[in-house]
Structure formats: C-alpha cells, structure tokens
Amino acid sequence: QEYSFTLHHFLGPQAPAHSQMLEPWARQVERNSDGRVAIEIFPSMTLGGRPTELIQQARDGVVDLIWTLNGYTPGLFPRTEVFELPTVFENDIPATNLAMRALFDAYLAEEYQGLEVMFLHAHAGQGIQMVDMAARSPSDLERTSLRIPTRTGAWVIEALGAQPVAMPVPELPQALSKGVVDGALIPWEIIPALRIFQQTEYQIEGPNAERLGTSVFQVSMNQSRWDDLPEDIQAAFRDASNEEFLRQIGDVWRQADDTGIRIAVENGNQHLMLTAEEWASFEDAVAPVVERWQDEVSGSDIDGEALVEAARQAIADNATR
C-alpha cells in the first residue's frame, strides 16, 4: 500500500464501536482508494497512553487516526458540547450525526485545531439506570447519588436535585451493587459488557426513547498527515464518511442500545418508558442546564444561545423519528 494509517482507540476489539463502525469504515476507505490505503486499527490503547491522551496523540502524529470521546478532554470542544445537552439531544442519533456535519464548518471547526475531523457521532443518550427505584418524576431522584456521564451530565444530575458522583466506568458495577451510587446516567449499550442488569432493577427513559442528553465522539486524523494526502485519497476518506454512513452508524449505536435493554429485560429488569406527562416533568427540571451551559461558554466568547438554536434546528431538519 502507498498510504498506511494507524487508527487508535480505547475500547476492546469486540465492542460494537470497533467491529461494526470503525472496521467497516476503515475497509470502505481502503476499497474507495483501490487498495492504495491500508488502515490498521489498534484497540484498547495498545499504542500506549490513556484515553485522555488520544486527542494529543492525533495532534502530534503519534498515531494517524483516533476514535475518542470528546468528553475525555473537557473544555476542549465547548461548541460541540451543545449536542450533548439534554432537550437538545433527545433520541435521534442519525439526525444528531447529520446535524453536527451540517453545522461543522460554520460553528464547530475552529475548536478542532491540529485535527482533520472525519466524522462526529453521538451514542443513544443517557438513560436513567437505577438500582431499586422506579423513578417517575424528578422529585423521586432528589437526594439520590448518580454517576455522571459527562461534564454537562453532572449539571443534569444537579438540576434533578441529585448528587453527582464521578468514577471510571469499570467501577460502576461495584458502586451500584454496594450502594455507593443509587444509579447512573448512561446508555443501555453498556449493560451487556458490564452486566449492569445484575446490579440494577430499572432502566428508565421517555415515551419515545428520549434521553437526558448524549455524548459526542470523533474520528479524526492528524492535520498535516491529511494536508499531505493527494485529493483522490482524501476523497476516499470523505466518501467513506458520507451522510449515508452517518445514518448507518446511528443505526449501529441504536442496535447496540437495543441489545443492551433486551438483555436487561431478559434478565428480569424493568424497562420503564415514562408517559409523555412524566417525561415532560423531567424535561422541565433539566431545562436550566441549557442556560447554565450558555452562561458558561459565553466566558469563552461563544454565542451559546445561537448555537443551541442552530443545533435544535439542524436536528429537526434531519429528524428520523
């Protein structure tokens, strides 16, 4: 091959993100290039460092390509964070992926210095997973302690009157089983890998699978590596990351999430889909998080209000459900 690339990420090779998203994408790029490109994927941080270092590794050219969670480097991608907010992200993964693509050049690009973004995507969103409480209103969650998913996820938990607790994901099962936390905001997709159904009884979401915000991920290339590529090779990457692909990976993450809740239910868990009325009370309770975010980013000269509006509009324009 004329061009070989390393793609580094933090999950294991059997995670759907690896086998159903990154592998097919890499193979598609290779096919698009007529075999002139080879992409080798290194899972589980096998090229060294910690997940938080992935962004820096791509910027420095330690690796060519990365897949990472924006939230691992809080404060680095404040604009993109708008898509993680509750009531901005509700339940539509493909629409959110496409909306981020639509707004990228005008609103988001400047915060990805040193990186050429291949694509941004979201997961199915933060569901409420409780040890033993069938929470049907925000007041049920008052004074409970919940594991935070992201920086803004901590604000969501505060807005619900609950206690945010930070811990690495692998510690979650033990923390749940021992009552260190009463629950967590995290998608269903992690249920099989961590066997969360053993420690929780209730998986709670809105009537149409609405969630309380999401997390954004990126696949990015080192900027100068990208700039040195001829146009036809760049096109091979662009074509593999097209809008059709963004829809497809939306489905991949949806299916991973569906698998998670199916396994939970098969193991006797309760899957609570709240009524529209009940869900509205949650949305009301977390609405101030959006304002809090707008205030916060205005400190870095970002027009948060305009960004929220643009994000809502773009998601609505691409709505799939």
Binding site: Q56, R59, G71, T73, P74, G75, L76, Q113, R151, A154, A166
Partner: peptide, 11 residues
C-alpha cells in the same frame, strides 16, 4: 501543549 490547548480536569 497542555497550556495552549487548555487541558483541564473534568469537575
């Protein structure tokens, strides 16, 4: 790097 990119802890 850490300074210019503004890496900070989560909470």
């Amino acid at each position: 790097d850490q300074r210019s990119y503004g890496y900070a802890t989560t909470i």
